[in-house]
Amino acid sequence: MLLLAIDTSAAATVALLRDDVVVARFGSADTRSHAEVLAPAVRRILAEAAVDGTDLDAVVAGVGPGPFTGLRAGLVTARTLGFVWGVPLHGVMSLDALAFDAVASGSLPAGSSFLAGTDARRGEVYWAAYRAPSDGHALPELLDGPRVGAAAGLPKGQPLVGRAASLYPGDVDGVPEFARADPDAASLGRVARLRLLAGEALRDTAPLYLRESDAQVPGPRKRATA
């Protein structure tokens, strides 16, 4: 199975996977230049692997939650590539990639509950609650979320993986080796592959904004009184 995965929910990341092997990977920590770096990364990765887009079995996109502008750069890229190449397009919740990484590293006891959290800016985090698999399954189970809110309001007493841990160390119980981690396209691709192999339905690429746009309907003009 040949997959191209893109996640721009935090960093801009791209990965090409052949079955469980990551053939090539790109990551940029700059969260403000997704529209610049993404397309060159896709072109370079495909060229280096001598893969034509039409050879892909699917394009996989991280659908967030994440800051809007960067998230959209990844989604419109994935949708356009999928359309032109005529290959299937799948969405994966970006926090699933973080949760998968944490479980795969063995940092969390089998069957234990934990949180994955990323930077939502404005003093808030995007987060979801998971349970680590206990029976040989590689995929953690989503228990709650995704949600957006203050780190102080997260469920207490559960370890947290993801950048939210280094941003709000006083509010959450961070797993040190994942305290600065962002969702990664390689892990996102692995999650998608395992779901496809298991015959599970994947989500579409509708973005998880979790917040309304900031727009406010203007109130009526104050009238001068006679």
């Binding site: 993404l38 397309a39 896709v42 495909l46 887009g53 502008t69 959209r72 750069a73 419109v76 032109v84």
Partner: peptide, 12 residues
């Protein structure tokens, strides 16, 4: 940013 990202993907 949306149109530019889309155009680049189309070019790739």
């Amino acid at each position: 940013m949306v149109g530019v990202s889309a155009a680049k993907a189309l070019a790739v």
